[in-house]
Design a protein around this nucleic acid. Sequence first.
DNA 1: CGCTAACCGATAAGCGTTTTCGAGAGGATC
DNA 2: GATCCTCTCGAAAACGCTTATCGGTTAGCG
Lengths: 342, 342
Amino acid sequence: MQKTGQSTINDVARIAGVSKKTVSRVINRSPLLNEDTRRRVEEVIAELGYIPNPQARALALRRNFLIGLVHDNPNAQTVMNVQQGMLEALHGTEFEMVVRPLDRGSATMLDDLRHFLERQRLFGVLLMPPISENDSVARLCDDIGCRYVRMGSAMLDDTDHMVASNDREAVHAAVSFLIEQGHRRIGLVAGPHGFRSARERRQGFEDALAAAGIALPRSMIADGNYTFDSGLVAAERLLDVVPRPTAIFSSNDEMAAGVIHAARQRGLDIPRDLSIVGFDDTPIAAHVWPPLTTVRWPIASMARSAALKLIAGGVEQEPAVEEPSLFLSTLIRRGSVAVPRE
Amino acid sequence: MQKTGQSTINDVARIAGVSKKTVSRVINRSPLLNEDTRRRVEEVIAELGYIPNPQARALALRRNFLIGLVHDNPNAQTVMNVQQGMLEALHGTEFEMVVRPLDRGSATMLDDLRHFLERQRLFGVLLMPPISENDSVARLCDDIGCRYVRMGSAMLDDTDHMVASNDREAVHAAVSFLIEQGHRRIGLVAGPHGFRSARERRQGFEDALAAAGIALPRSMIADGNYTFDSGLVAAERLLDVVPRPTAIFSSNDEMAAGVIHAARQRGLDIPRDLSIVGFDDTPIAAHVWPPLTTVRWPIASMARSAALKLIAGGVEQEPAVEEPSLFLSTLIRRGSVAVPRE
DNA sequence: CGCTAACCGATAAGCGTTTTCGAGAGGATC
DNA sequence: GATCCTCTCGAAAACGCTTATCGGTTAGCG
């Protein structure tokens, strides 16, 4: 019984009867190595329970075995889903996840990020929306020589550095579903400016109406910022319009919950008087009353794939792109949509 | 204009006209240092934008500048609040946060944690409930020589290693409030076994009833596991009892949302037919209809304080205990409580 | 003037890896 | 049989910081 984590590369080298360098080659999967030697060393490593010291490695390689998650996302559930997906990918590897919230909007944002990356010499970073949509952030990573993968609602980079969902098509399908049910006056609670996801989803909304030949008066669009409260006030504006919309598409679930709230406050029954469709499929969607028909956004899978992209090929090679880069969002039908009464 | 992060300790020493050792003394806040020297060195450091290389420091000190957040908590919002509190405390320091979910229940849980701590040589860890309630985890940290602070719903350790809330008293007060409103048949949706918070909250519930001289039939207690769905089925059991309870205290908000769901499903009006009180004050509490009267659990402040405790005194001294260790939970009155009709 | 304490420097030895450079072994080639 | 090349591996020098040791200088103090 050997105490784990205590043995050093010298021990391994001594016992295996080779040099430190050879052990190092085994660890780093160098191709120029005799098969017998490799096996012998690997046996000793296993027997000793030897684990290379990450700090020493980090110093020598000038690169830490940390993957950063940088985000500026207000939605707790989304961030947690991303973390979970990342950790799933990192589990069992030598990498750890360090998370770094950033203040988009702050003037020193880029400098903060630069300091963070340079100091910690991260192996790579995963960029969450909406910060991932900032091109200068990606450029910064390139400059510093830090790998990165961006997550987003549309492809804005090559597949080595991007993992995206098809928000526009998904919303198109969701709104088309409303139209099929017979809805003609459909309101939109849009997402905040500066969010690509907001733009894509809005575009999908407009596309669907246009495809069905339905006019879209300006009054049927209300802005929100992805929060419950903003959804509530947006819904109030929408519901004030005469004639009232019979359905509302909300660009995310949290705002949809606000819409439900607003509708209930004026005595409207959902879905009888008003149909609602959300986006994200966070837990709140299932827990609200009635359960929300929404578009499932596979953010955890996206994060998992993004993390795998980052660490693919280990330290040596360039990332191999076997991970999928496009993830499809699908409509989840629950109880918040009905045929309009009129 | 010097490129930041590139200068080494030698540069600083040379320019400041002192030795490396002295610079090191400045950085590590050694007490035996002339004030003038320190200032001069600090000026050069600032001017150069010198930042000591964390990897080299970690190697030499055999200790990383990372604070771990280890948790096994199903609630996304709670975890995010803790992360936010931690990051607030860590902001501007040399520390980063690395998060590590653990599988309580897994047989290898302790081994996993040991490997994690030994490999990464963490500076310290913050233990979230419910894993923080596991004494062997704390012992493990002690053995390895890793600082730790536990968060929980009752003091189970000295104030150097613990940050706690007063759940029992808070629930006592909340339930007493229900009693003052005139409720006599009050149901409890309890938390899962193995959670200290569940025990404390249940105890507070029982204490309040006992103090008011109200009997507590076994049928007025239903078990849940802190999830929405478990709250829903617990509520169904409670609402089947005849005569029906006029109020329900739920051990957390998510289950309270489930209770609301269940009540609505059988046509009960809240708060007219049933009053509900939750615990945590997560966003869901404000976004549910009607807005939930609940107990505010200051988990973010607790995490912030815990993190400050961890890094207090820097590398050298023992942690100075100036941070508060007990945080008070208070009742937030919203719309889910009314006077019983009968 | 001598003594003590406080402060700082020079040097070297780690910390546990990776990397540079090159050497030895064993064919293949001429 | 000499030369060259490839494959495999080792000795020693980084990586950038801390620490130990020892020694020296200065200031204060009786």
